[in-house]
């Protein structure tokens, strides 16, 4: 078996008296797509918030490619190659596709102290390329993200993650509020992660979607991991039982 890309050891999280995560221990292996399922309040959001650097654990350790890491913000996680695509959409609707692609990581010409002139030409070219790479056909990188459909937006978010060569992609309910056709497209994206050598963590309420595109299923309930099995060794009934 290959060495895990992410190891989570005994992770705890308290929110003002609420024990939201109770000692989660979990491995993610390279090139594997893990489905994370659980009811509301089961702790899956807490777990991925910690992995994506938006929250700090109260206790416990995270190892990335064997190194112990502690993320002070989402940027630290992104710099390691962990990209998160949130359910509420990690795009700014009032900005163009090209600008959204590079938010926080804009290529700059002549800068001082991290602030500088945007390389708009490069942004346009690279975003067109990145979008084409995920087989999404958008005519102009200058179109506003607010004018795209939900599925197209998730596509752009995924294109962005791929463009920045992420090693792990966390997808937090990416199929929520999507039409059936769009959902198919997003599931297709998740299935293609494997061929691109990206580890996927797919969070969903919909167990059918998880069975369709994941190699392994991890179920959480009441802040604990209650099941961790390869897709072939479990079935929907068992999962519904433990939730």
């Amino acid at each position: 078996m290959t060495a895990p890309i992410i190891q989570v050891k005994n992770l705890h999280k308290w929110y003002s008296g609420v024990h939201a995560l109770k000692g989660a221990t979990l491995d993610f292996r390279p090139n594997e797509t893990v489905g994370l399922v659980g009811d509301n309040g089961a702790g899956k959001s807490t777990l991925i918030n910690i992995l994506s650097g938006t929250q700090a654990p109260s206790e416990g350790e995270i190892y990335f490619e064997g190194r112990k890491v502690s993320f002070k913000g989402p940027r630290d996680a992104m710099d390691e190659g962990i990209e998160t695509i949130y359910q509420y959409n990690s795009m700014v609707p009032t900005m163009s596709i090209a600008r959204n692609m590079f938010i926080g990581r804009e290529p700059i010409k002549y800068g001082i102290g991290g602030i500088g002139i945007l390389d708009t030409k490069r942004m346009a070219e690279e975003s067109v390329q990145a979008i084409a790479d995920v087989d999404l056909h958008l005519r102009s990188p200058d179109a506003l993200v607010g004018e795209l459909s939900g599925g197209q937006r998730q596509g752009v978010a995924i294109a962005r993650a791929m463009h920045f060569k992420s090693k792990v992609m966390i997808l937090d309910e990416p199929t929520n509020h999507l039409a059936v056709k769009e959902t198919r497209k997003v599931i297709g994206f998740v299935q293609s992660l494997k061929s691109l050598g990206i580890t996927g963590i797919f969070i969903s309420h919909n167990i059918h979607h998880v069975f369709e595109c994941c190699d392994r299923i991890v179920a959480m309930a009441r802040g604990e991991i209650v099941l961790d099995k390869p897709v072939g060794e479990t079935n929907m009934d068992e999962i519904l039982d433990v939730l």
Binding site: Y86, S90, V92, T94, R99, F102, I103, R105, E106, L118
Partner: peptide, 16 residues
């Protein structure tokens, strides 16, 4: 870009 993103949709700006 950050100014516009911060005002446009704060959660996205923060998560990026």
């Amino acid at each position: 870009n950050w100014v516009r993103a911060t005002g446009g949709f704060l959660p996205a700006a923060q998560s990026m």
